[in-house]
Design a protein around this nucleic acid. Structure first.
Length: 812
RNA sequence: GUCGGCGUGGCGGAACGGCAGACGCGCCGGACUUAGGAUCCGGUGCCCGAGAGGGCAUGGAGGUUCAAAUCCUCUCGCCGACACCA
């Protein structure tokens, strides 16, 4: 019997069987013409690095559970998959492997990854698979670039850009982390002046910010991160005339116009265009030296708040428009050319940075906002809070909040300034000096200038030969579409975040040869109902995708104005304290897992291991618990005879109740992505069923119901074993087609509840009472208890608190 | 520095303000076994107690409440994001 038992559940036999059946029957194919409600279940498409471990698979298992659940619940489910296939790693890997083509490497990895996903029992509609590096896809990335260009949202500009010396390409601001390249945390980014393509995401700053309010089902953390990233601030721009330069003035931006009277000097960024012009002769040499040094200083040094402030006086003066005061103009690198106007008015009494600077260079500090307790006696630090305006002429006595608007009104009236809103967000630099990316479909003609490639000539194909596009005349030599003269193609390619900003639309009509996506289908499927992926994309990818959707919405191509309704960021799987990866040598591959314990055990373990949003530590012993659970389930369902009976009977009503409660708990947990507790409830049910049999419970209708319900509830998370058991139960239809169990509230209700009696907050007795007892009856019961009487110490309760019908609290 | 999040048994972790520690791992004891790293049964927060039972427990200190892991204040520790944005 032991032998028979042990050979009973063999995942290695049943898993390939069902994977084949699902594929043959096209179980996860999404129909575009369906009367069912739709559910678009999206997982972030991965970079095909060839490093797929069970850690990555955890994310896809979550998506798969939802897809299978929603399918059983009667939704038309779209669960597609694809590959973020352009990008640098392919070029680097190709180089390492002696000049093989990035495409070869990429295609190999895609094949490998696909096999491993299937092996884990994760079902996608593979007919819709997309890959950003194939012409069928990047044709439309180019097309979308041209759409942006036509709408004035793509422009070319010379600007100081972030240059990664290792990747030999520019980076978007978002790809610079602490002054270093996002791919190489030990490599400092350099500044270079280059002419590059940008997307004008700043035009959408307000909408990207405001619409965050619509994304209620996004994690607060991600919404906060996006809010901070966009960094909206309200204030005023003010012009300070320059003494001795008739008609010239310096425009500054401030968020505190109410402190204008406290401006005792001005500071320009070293790169500010007026620096050369206004600097007096005596200071010229020193100023030039300072500017030169600042230019060389790396971003990381410059941004360090630890560093003492540096700066230099230009010798020039400006006039404060509110009081006509002459104030000196300084230069300092703590003022950034890339934010605001690149110039500030310094109010040392009410700004920490200005304060520090004034102290260091002995510049005057004048208090113009009095804190609640009245003016400060000693100005030992900047007071940055709100207060009452002082030393501010006609504005004296105003609350700073009121003064804010009054001063702006005054400035606008005099034509000296205006209300202004600034953002931290910068435009998105999309040019990359790389081969393995989507070509930018632009031609430069000496006569006609920047000429977009006509739509009929798309796609601009990457040349087969793997070498820099700018060194490949077969690629860049072309003729002008307008005048026919010799012209040169743009040889930069696009940031791969452009591809990933719209890939989820391509799934909807992946073979469409006339447009990037079918608007009608997009209006059926979009927005995405559930998007699952790593929190590392909380800013870049999600912000860019939101921007794309808004542009497409404005272009009339899409009804949706937000791409993803519900977002979930899953945690990472670690092993030996480190994030699991093949290259780190701590990876567990799907191959190993499936061969040893099976895909189902692996899937369930990955969900049971901890809360889905938390990082978790993989531990091989824990996996055994899940294997035991599956063996127990198998025995209960397939071989209940093998269970030793040691009792004289068990109540089927109790079994039904447990089943009904489990339906509720597991369904809710799956829907809210609380997979760890969903598994716990399934285990509880299996334990209860085992107890039932051991106590001699009848294998009647209630038992049958329990068995079938357990199998169904198990299906999304452990689909192979569930499907096999379903078949062996003699069911004719596939479990994948079965209906999700309905919650039976009546069966789930407890007829008896435990009445917990507290005296002054301490539990004194527990009494089993019928549910729905009136509160007076409950009190009577409670007072009938000797232990309660003893605790009340003779006297009766002076106060009684009832909570639901299960708890009663007596206060002596 | 600023803003978030988190501190619960030996471990991973459960707990609408209402029985703290579900579920699992591990461990202890037992049954069945040639054997057990299979399976089954029982136990397992700490302290006192033979037992019934009692006391103490959710990083620490206060507070609100009949009642706090949960809410508030302070504090310590860990993790994450941002970091001279005027």
């Amino acid at each position: 019997m032991n032998q028979r038992r042990r050979s009973a559940y063999v995942p290695q036999e049943i898993e390939p069987k069902w994977q084949k059946i699902w594929a043959d029957r096209g179980v996860m194919k999404a129909a575009d013409t369906s009367t069912k409600p739709k559910y678009y279940d999206l997982v972030m498409y991965p970079y095909p690095s060839g490093d797929l471990t069970v850690g990555h698979a955890r994310n896809y298992v979550m998506g798969d559970i939802l897809a299978r659940l929603k399918r059983m619940q009667g939704y038309e489910v779209l669960h597609p998959f694809g590959w973020d296939a352009f990008g640098l790693p392919a070029e680097n890997a190709a180089m390492k492997r002696g000049g093989i083509h990035p495409q070869t490497w990429t295609i190999e990895n895609i094949a490998k990854g696909k096999r491993e996903l299937k092996m884990m029992g994760i079902l996608y509609d593979w007919d819709r698979e997309v890959s950003s590096c194939v012409p069928d896809f990047y044709h439309w990335t180019e097309w979308l670039f041209l759409l942006f260009y036509k709408r004035g949202l793509a422009y070319r500009a010379m600007s100081p850009v972030n240059w990664c010396p290792v990747d030999k390409t520019v980076l978007a601001n978002e790809q610079v982390v602490n002054g270093r390249c996002w791919r190489h945390p030990d490599v400092e980014v350099e500044k270079r002046d280059l002419e590059q393509w940008f997307f004008k995401i700043t035009d959408y700053a307000d909408r990207l910010l405001d619409d965050l309010a619509l994304l209620e089902k996004w994690p607060t953390k991600v919404r906060v991160m996006q809010t901070n990233w966009i960094g909206r601030s309200e204030g005023a721009e003010v012009d300070f005339p320059i003494v001795g330069h008739e008609g010239e003035s310096i425009r500054i931006y401030t968020t505190r116009p109410d402190t204008l009277f406290g401006a005792t000097f001005m500071v320009l960024a070293p790169e500010h265009p007026l620096v050369e012009k206004i600097t007096i002769d005596k200071q010229r040499a020193d100023v030039r030296e300072y500017v030169e040094k600042a230019r060389k200083a790396s971003e990381i040094d410059r941004l360090s708040t630890e560093r003492a402030k540096t700066g230099i006086n230009t010798g020039a003066f400006a006039v404060n428009p509110v009081n006509g005061e002459k104030i000196p103009i300084w230069i300092a690198d703590y003022v950034l050319m890339t934010y605001g106007t690149g110039a500030i008015m310094a109010v040392p009494a009410h700004d920490e940075r200005d304060f520090e600077f004034a102290r260091r260079f002995n510049l005057p500090i004048r208090e113009v906002i009095a804190p609640p307790g009245g003016p400060q006696r000693d100005l030992s630090e900047a007071f940055v809070g709100p207060g009452v305006m002082v030393n501010s002429g006609e504005f004296d006595g105003l609350e700073s909040k009121v003064g804010f608007d009054r001063v702006i009104a005054w400035l606008e009236n005099k034509g000296e300034g205006k209300r202004a809103i600034k953002y931290r967000l910068r435009d998105w630099l999309i040019s990359r000096q790389r081969y393995w990316g989507c070509p930018i479909p632009i031609i430069y003609c000496e006569v006609d200038g920047i000429v977009p490639v006509p739509a009929k000539d798309l796609p601009v194909l990457l040349p087969e030969e793997y070498k820099p596009l700018s060194e490949n005349p077969d690629f860049f030599k072309t003729t002008c579409p307008i005048c026919g003269r010799d012209a040169r193609r743009e040889t930069d390619t696009m940031d791969t975040f452009v591809d990933s900003s719209w890939y989820f639309l391509r799934y909807l009509s992946p073979t469409d040869t006339t447009e990037p996506f079918d608007p009608e289908l997009a209006n059926y499927w979009m927005p995405v109902d559930q998007y699952t992926g790593g929190v590392e994309h909380a800013i870049l990818h999600l912000l860019y995708s939101r921007f794309f959707i808004k542009v497409l919405h404005d272009a009339g191509m899409l009804e949706a104005s937000e791409p993803f309704m519900r977002l979930f960021n899953q945690g990472m799987v670690k092993r030996f304290g480190q994030v699991m990866s093949k290259s780190a040598g701590n990876g567990v591959s799907p191959d190993e897992l499936v061969a040893k314990q099976g895909a189902d055990a692996g899937r369930i373990y990955e969900m049971f291991i901890g809360p889905p949003e938390e990082d978790v530590e993989w531990n091989d012993a824990g996996l055994n618990g899940v294997v035991r659970f599956l063996q127990r389930v198998w025995r209960l369902v397939i071989e209940p005879d093998s269970i030793v009976v040691g009792g004289s009977g068990a109540d089927p009503v109790l079994l039904r109740r447990k089943v009904a409660q489990t339906v509720k708990n597991v369904t809710d947990d799956y829907e809210e992505l609380r997979f760890n507790t969903a598994v716990a409830y399934l285990m509880e049910l299996a334990n209860a069923m085992q107890d039932y049999l051991q106590q001699g419970g009848a294998r009647d209708e209630s038992w049958d119901h329990a068995v079938r319900t357990l199998v169904k509830l198990l299906n999304p998370i452990g689909p192979h074993i569930a499907e096999e058991m379903w078949e062996r139960l003699g069911e004719r239809s596939m479990l994948a087609d079965a209906q999700w169990p309905e919650f039976d509230a009546a069966a789930a209700a407890e007829p008896e509840v435990t009445l917990v009696v507290q005296v002054a907050g301490k539990v004194r007795d527990r009494l089993s009472v019928p549910a729905g007892l009136s509160q007076d009856q409950a009190l009577e019961k409670a007072l009938g208890s000797d232990r309660v009487k003893a605790a009340l110490d003779g006297g009766g309760p002076s106060k009684v608190i009832y909570v639901q019908d299960r708890l009663i609290n007596l206060v002596p």
